[in-house]
Design a protein around this nucleic acid. Structure first.
Lengths: 338, 338
DNA sequence: CTGTTAGCGCCTTCAA
DNA sequence: TTGAAGGCGCTAACAG
């Protein structure tokens, strides 16, 4: 692997001159520049980012931690962030926490060791000890939380308008004639899950419908667990709700499996709406009424805020809070039967 | 950001000793070790990987380039690779080429500059100039190609058994009674697409069915394009095939949209089978008969081979070729109507 | 076992 | 406009 020294030698100039043509920070005369560029090409030289980073103490790299990038919401976040980062000359390292607090801690530590200049974090569903985050902030490493926002930590954040989005979804179910509406949530330890639950309650309240505690089903992000919970709730026709609203994709899968297991069809037997797209397309039935989050934009905005912090474009000390609107895609699963 | 020097100062030892306790390469007496560990904790010290990499010329990092990680096949590859890498102490940087040759070139260059120790590559659908790859190999940077295998470049590779997998899928359609079977492919410039086409032909041959050129539909990876192509082929009931086999997921989406647009239902009007899962679950109908690739394993095996090369565990000069079997999941879309 | 020190490759003054 | 030299933080000899 040739170094800048080799390039200088081949080009017959000093390393300083080579550095100048690479960074463009100092003008270099035409003839020397050409010689240097020729040498770079001939040697197939690639500047050593590692050495540069050590010297400048800038890695031009961001890190992003997501729970699991095989869940379709997260790759979109990542791509939004990646694109925004690239436009400003930064790379992105994406890693998975598997919603595990310990793993998240390791990853945070790894990213710090790798000297990423900022961190995008979707916190793990497992309760994250406060100090895991404050440690980062205390070290003045810029950080932006996406999608899931931690409690009691003043940190920049970008997410969907959870309350309004959930309210919109539930209002729609009500408008379609549903009255006994259950909600299935993910890990309620997460603030955004609680806010979605709040949106549900607001929608019921607005329609003059009383909240029944038995219709609030606290689940998690494992479809298998959720379907067990739901089957228990759905098995008795007498107490069965006429609609279910769901606060996220993996939980929704569990609910739908429970419907199947109980022989319930949507919307014939029960109406359904959920956060997050479950299938790639509208080709499959039942097509599911969905509260669609602007995942790509969330990633993109978060990266921009992070970069603004890193580059000192933004200096405000209070944390920045961005809430983006969701879109309701009305499909078959919420239609009035017949 | 504290350095090793600061730690040494606080602990009252030399930097060498601190380094020894961090790397564990040299024994350190109990009392000193405890003092150092205390200092590390107090300072919230994180060893600088950048400096370490520069010194050791080992970054402990792998790169992986995929076309688009919002396509569900690729996150699985990445996670397989990530897990294998982590088990051996390596990190993984994942980036997207968008199937663009120029972008791929930039990414290769970026990864080289970042001094990744090896590269996992799913080549872009846009024809990749040979020298883009030979350049990497010539620089003796270990590389393993996954999923899509380049022509005429002797490089380690891991993919599914394309021919056998396609043959299995088409044989199944034949067994279900189909005789006029069309195939829709992705970018035929890719060897694996050609091999899948070959598997299709072999299956027809084995059943004594003649290959009709009009039933070979050359598509690409953009569903919109594919549905235009297919609509043209499907509009005439007289020439319409009684089954379609598809070589990859995005192309399959295009085919299914064309079915919908032409008012065709599967399997009632036409049977269908494809490579790659289209939906997350069997909850949706029509459920699609699918040739499922072991995506996670492909990523994992590829990473292992790469690491074996990097660490000199494997020294053979011929390229390593791994072909993993696919699994046929038989679902509704290929069932005999009635 | 512990301390000292020479670079890894690069960028950035500073001097010429 | 060009060249020379220090040092970023760390590890790996080597000396003690």
């Amino acid at each position: 692997m040739p170094s800048i020294k080799k390039v200088a030698e081949i080009a017959g100039v000093s390393v300083g001159t080579v550095s100048h043509v690479i960074t463009g920070s100092v003008p270099v005369s035409e003839p020397l520049r050409l010689k240097v560029q020729a040498a770079i090409r001939d040697l197939n030289y690639h500047p050593n980012h590692v050495a540069r980073s050590l010297k400048t103490s800038k890695t031009q790299t961001l890190g992003i931690i997501v729970p699991d990038m095989t869940i379709s919401f997260f790759p979109q976040l990542i791509r939004g962030a990646e694109t925004a980062a690239r436009q400003r000359g930064y790379s992105l390292i994406a890693v998975n926490s598997d919603d595990d607090g310990e793993r998240q801690k390791e990853l945070l530590s790894l990213l710090r060791s790798q000297r990423v200049e900022g961190i995008l974090l979707v916190i793990a569903a497992a309760p994250t000890p406060l100090n895991q985050l404050t440690r980062i902030l205390d070290a003045s490493i810029p950080m932006v939380c996406l999608d899931r926002i931690p409690d009691r930590v003043p940190v920049d954040s970008v997410s969907v308008e959870d309350v309004a989005a959930a309210e919109m979804g539930v209002e729609h179910l009500i408008a379609m004639g549903a009255r006994r509406i259950a909600i299935a949530t993910g890990a309620i330890a997460l603030k955004n899950e609680r806010r979605r639950l709040q949106g549900y309650k607001q929608a019921l309240f607005g329609a003059g419908i009383a909240v029944e505690e038995e219709l609030i089903w606290h689940g998690n992000f494992r479809p298998e667990d959720v379907s067990v919970i739901c089957r228990a709730q759905l098995s008795n026709p007498a107490t069965r709700p006429d609609a279910v609203f769901c606060t996220n994709g993996p939980t929704a899968l569990g609910v739908l499996r429970a419907f199947r297991d109980c022989g319930l069809q949507t919307p014939r037997d029960i109406a359904f709406a959920t956060f997050d797209e479950l299938t790639v397309d509208d080709l499959f039935s039942p097509s599911i009424t969905t509260v669609v989050q602007p995942a790509y934009d969330i990633g993109s905005r978060a990266a921009q805020i992070l970069l603004d912090r890193i580059e000192g474009v933004v200096t405000q000390t209070e944390s920045i809070t961005v809430r983006l609107p969701a879109i309701l895609k009305i499909r078959d699963s919420s239609r009035r039967p017949g």
